[in-house]
Design a protein around this nucleic acid. Structure first.
Lengths: 404, 404
DNA sequence: TTAGTTAGGAAGGGGTCCTGACCAAAGATT
DNA sequence: AATCTTTGGTCAGGACCCCTTCCTAACTAA
């Protein structure tokens, strides 16, 4: 998963460019296959043995690699295994959502060594939320101490769109959560040296499914989240599509047949259709505490349908078709190889077949439709993946603390 | 505009990589600012003077650069201007569409030096069309002779989707043009050495608008073509989005309010709505010769509306809204910075305001909506741009004929 | 005429990668 | 047990690329 670099930073040809490229490849190889000997790295990458050795020496001197035992059992000289040093650095991922704030610190392999959470601040004001965020991150950093090296990246997940140019959170006019009004980059700026990455939660869930989940084998898919709110994360050619202003994937605005667009009624066509389908009286204007209610109502409908109530079954059928329509629209626009369903409502098994049928019926070239496999940890995993990606690429560009 | 490289071809660090990078940057600079001296290149790129000189020497030896006069009028030593050699190579672009086959040969600056066209073969059979294509390309190559160096790339535009993995044309089941049944790569394989690029016509029109047209200043936009057929070209982060199976941008399948999706009726929702709006009796099943008719009918409606006929004005208004709905759907999915309208129908000025109003009303964050500026030459220009991009990047990787 | 300025080249240094030879040690073979 | 083969790692040498520094030629400005 690449996060596009700005075209401004065009790398000039130079010796250091070459060296960093080599180091990056060697380090990546060690990440991929741990532990590994120099000779294996050379064979796997195609780089000559001597160059690999040289690079490994640099990386060890920089504190990024460590010898890890001996390769025995085969003929010939005993090789020395290498691994990434446990003190090479660590990353922090934060999921900032209306229900709670969750944090996860992990080493560069993505193995978490620390997790914590806080319930939402009371009263729920932006300043309070910001304070809690600071608190949680500060605690994590002090607790990590220097056992894991230095902090290399922080990724924060938010429920709002994020401006891709500035990484600023875009407040939503219609559902102003206090969590959506704080700017993590400003909030944490004086607390951490590392780069602070901010990204939308559904996008991050998509990233997670790409790394560990159901989209491991494809580089072009859409992750459709349907819960109290809805959204979509889009990965095309292994790149996360964020849109010019960060609102790519706002599929709640799609028009669908049961909620056709009309003057003043068109906004949230799809979102209204889904919410209205489950709960005709409410629509989408539930407000903050209504969110859980929306999911609960949907669950009740699913339960009634499972018990055989014809009316509820019809609702499920219709909802599946509505979702299928939205997915078909997405397919007509960007043609993903796979579409994953996620979120408390989207994951419900009763929905899958109706959705598939509708997409089959409507999409030009229907994609595979599957369900996400990561559940509600997807967001945090995605933030972790984002931070990791950044940390790993930064490692070689700026040699570790040992070399300064 | 980048056409994504496969991740398999990961460049290994090496001296030649460095050299090729330098040469590419130098050559690109000469393309950008012709004529230019070595010193200017050095200053502009940040590469040292000696390195630039060395690179220029290589490129001149390879026949890619030529001295072009002297830099006078300022203090100091007289500099020698350099330009790209006229014999460095050339590219060929072909627009293969049901109306005619057009060809354009151009030097590496994109200046055409040869243009030709053939009317469609009669009878219109795939074998005949293929023969005409071969004929046209063969003529172009012989006529180009060696005045322009060797042929470096051929780009062929087709009205069908193209599989991004194999570059094969995907036949359309519902409108089987004979042009859509031939595979340019196979047809031309024994005729040309150069790589043969095949791409969808609307995608290429989008590429053209990015290079020379209305999208010069943005790297994320959608080009919506509405004529007899309809389609969309999508550029995100300066990359052309082709979709997993090449059918990204098939917006004819979008569901819109005036043509809601329903069992067996949902396919071509948007396409049907547009066609049906102008010509209620026909729908979209016009067949081959019906295409021009569809455009003519639309034109008549526009004319009647211009003369003040209320009914026709209402049709235009409704059509604009329908198109706006489709664009809003696109915005909800990928959030382009700009949306360009193109095609004989889409370009009509009477449509612009209704479309804008509808998008303003329906899209989450409405983009700028403009009209394409390249008219019906857009496709050929786009093919040219595609071929040029490929040719220019290949130039340095494989040194010119002089060095073999 | 003289001083300042500029494009290009030459020399030398530092760095990176590669090839091929070499070495030492472990397992395999006899 | 002795020898052979294999193998990871190092060493030496060479090719190549880029950079800094200095130099020169040629032009303009005064």
């Amino acid at each position: 998963m690449e996060i596009r670099k700005g075209p401004g930073l065009r790398a000039l040809p130079s010796m250091t460019l070459l060296r960093e490229l080599t180091d990056q490849i060697v380090l990546d190889t060690v990440f991929e296959q741990t532990p590994v000997t120099r000779a294996e790295i050379a064979q796997h990458t195609g780089i000559s043995k001597t160059t690999v050795s040289e690079s490994a020496r640099r990386l060890e001197a920089a504190g990024l690699l460590l010898p890890a035992g001996e390769q025995r059992g085969r003929q010939g000289r005993v090789g020395t295994y290498y691994q990434v040093a446990p003190t090479a650095g660590y990353v922090v991922a934060v999921d900032l959502n209306p229900t709670r704030i969750r944090l996860c610190a992990a080493d560069l392999f993505g193995h978490p060594f620390q997790q914590s959470a806080l319930p939402p601040a009371q009263p729920r004001e932006p300043a309070r939320v910001a304070e809690r965020l600071r608190e949680l991150v500060a605690d994590a950093v002090t607790e990590a101490g220097s056992d894991h090296g230095r902090l290399l990246a922080v990724a924060v997940s938010v429920a709002n769109p994020v401006d891709p140019a500035t990484s600023r959170v875009i407040p939503l006019a219609d559902t102003p959560y206090p969590e959506g009004l704080i700017q993590p980059q400003e909030t944490l700026a004086d607390l951490v040296e590392a780069p602070i990455l901010v990204e939308n939660d559904v996008n991050l869930a998509a990233v997670a499914e790409r790394w560990h989940g159901a989209a491991r084998t494809t580089d072009s898919f859409a992750y459709v989240y349907i819960g109290a709110g809805m959204g979509m994360g889009l990965v095309v050619g292994d790149q996360l599509i964020r849109g010019a202003r960060g609102v790519a994937g706002e599929i709640g605005y799609l028009s669908v047949s049961s909620q056709p667009a009309g003057p003043g009624l068109g906004r949230h066509g799809f979102a209204r259709a889904v919410a209205g389908g489950f709960h005709p009286e409410r629509g989408q204007d539930g407000g903050q505490d209504g969110d859980q209610v929306a999911v609960d109502v949907a669950r009740q409908v699913f339960d009634r349908a499972a018990r055989g109530e014809a009316e509820a079954q019809a609702v499920v059928e219709r909802e599946g078709r509505t979702i299928g329509e939205a997915i078909a629209a997405v397919c007509a626009v960007i043609d993903p190889e796979v579409v994953l369903l996620g979120g408390p409502i989207g994951l419900h098994p009763a929905l899958l077949e109706p959705v598939r049928a509708a997409v089959r019926d409507l999409a030009p070239l229907p994609p595979a439709i599957e369900v996400g496999t990561l559940g509600d940890t997807a967001v945090l995993h995605g933030a972790l993946a984002l931070a990791l990606r950044r940390a790993r690429t930064d490692l070689c560009a700026r040699p570790g603390p040992a070399s300064r």
